[in-house]
Nucleic acid binder design. Structure first.
Lengths: 188, 188
DNA sequence: AACGCCTTGTCAACGACGTTGACAGGTGTG
DNA sequence: CACACCTGTCAACGTCGTTGACAAGGCGTT
């Protein structure tokens, strides 16, 4: 039950977490077995469960646990749409994008889905709601979240093609304008 | 190998498909076992695999197989954004929306992901590409697909709340306008 | 009628999976 | 020393998707 923050077990625990993160991001949830994680970390499969409770909890903790604050929200509202797309497509954010895709794909499991929803709320939609002005800010923030989520979900499969045909800047222009339509205070 | 279109086996095959569809939509892919499908259909588990090859192929065939043509594309371009949202949120389309959600959640498996991508292409994005005018029609069609996909994915979790707070018409207005930003031919 | 073939279905089993319980070393505290 | 506890090991359980061998029944050909 108890898990000490320091001590001998903490190093093996982080070793398990590192192996798990690498395998989950590379192969996804279903294709990664607890036994494979244990083998990569050089420990017993039972120890993985002992430390993290279950495969699902391990996934949520290592893949869904490292959320940044969301600095992409800083800046003028007039260019928020562009910045959101730039941030979502930032090549340096490849790891986070793959982590998000892995979570969406594993959202067949209730715990993963709940974690995904909660993470989106706390690190994105709530901040966005506080930022927007005009009517229906909460609803518009949710819909902007749907837009960004749709882009991130589609990107692993269509992103390469889009980059080759129209280029990153054009995608940022186009999708940024679409998001901006929800950022700008609508009539009525 | 060979599967006759008619004959004694066709009825049990469709019985398996019916049970599988109901269970997959209700519980999702991972939580539905081949044995449960077989029990619901009153057949042997091995027979399920015999008829459909694998659990994944069965899922793709029964959940991803019944795609409509897409009449939502008919009509003037000026209101296409609205119509797409109306169609995506149509209460009568609850089954299709749940099927789509089930496929997204099961897209951890390669075959499911491929089927999802192909279905989106053939029944939506290709038709949309043919419809749009102006520059970058293919890219804009893909991005519109991302928008619609994001909305459909988010809807099961946030739709109820949005309906209660701002109402369906307002959502159609807002998100429809955002999609319309990609439908309308952009400046250069 | 007798034969062989294909389809349809049954049965037991395989290997892999996530998870659990009982148990062993190792360390610090009374 | 004895006690407790954290850390780790081991074998096993039940379930899973899938497979192979085999039986029952229809059907055309000789």
């Amino acid at each position: 039950m108890t898990i000490t923050a320091t001590g001998a077990g903490a190093t093996t625990r982080s070793a398990i977490a590192a192996s798990a993160l690498a395998l989950f991001e590379e192969r996804g949830f279903a294709a990664t077995s607890v036994r494979a994680i244990a083998a990569a970390a050089g420990v017993d499969p039972a120890l993985v469960i002992r430390h993290f409770g279950s495969k699902e909890q391990l996934f949520v903790e290592v893949v869904g646990g490292n959320r940044g604050a969301g600095p992409e929200l800083d800046g003028p509202l007039e260019t928020l749409g562009r910045r959101l797309v730039e941030h979502a497509l930032d090549p340096a954010r490849d790891r986070e994008r793959r982590a998000y895709a892995a979570m969406v794909r594993a959202s067949d499991h209730d715990g993963v889905r709940d974690s995904l929803r909660q993470a989106a709320r706390s690190t994105f939609i709530d901040g966005l709601t506080a930022l927007l002005t005009g009517p229906c800010v909460a609803a518009r923030a949710e819909l902007i979240g749907a837009q960004v989520g749709g882009l991130m979900q589609a990107w692993p499969t269509v992103g390469e093609e889009l980059l080759a045909t129209v280029g990153r800047e054009r995608v940022i222009d186009l999708y940024g304008a679409a998001i901006q339509a929800l950022v700008d205070s609508p009539a009525s």
